[in-house]
Write a protein that binds this DNA or RNA. Sequence first.
DNA 1: CCAATGACGCCCA
DNA 2: ATGGGCGCCATTG
Length: 109
Amino acid sequence: MGFNKRVYEIVRQIPEGKVAFYGQIAFLAGVWRASRAVGYALHRNPYHGKVPCHRVVFKDGRLAAGFAFGGQGVQRQLLEGEGVQFTVDGRVDMEKCCWHPQKATEKDF
DNA sequence: CCAATGACGCCCA
DNA sequence: ATGGGCGCCATTG
């Protein structure tokens, strides 16, 4: 299950105050369109204590609905607490908080 | 191997 | 703007 593992390693590197969208994670994982698989992987998220899956949102900046960590409100508070800015629409401000991957997408786990 | 699933993403009515 | 539908892909039964 290299893909999943890769997803976890990548998400784990998202710094505080930043967010990434599923499609981006998929791209970094090596499969541009696997956004769906990324969501599946994060849903399982066996490393929920290490992987900040709450920093992964929709491409639009929308938060995962329904199943998200006990509610969108919770996820939003977590993100705000890390310094992520939200728009009046209730979405993450992708303009400023979109994660910019340095270079590392592997090792150290 | 085949069918079903899901925290996505995009197009069209 | 909203809602519905289809395609994508990895994982699971």
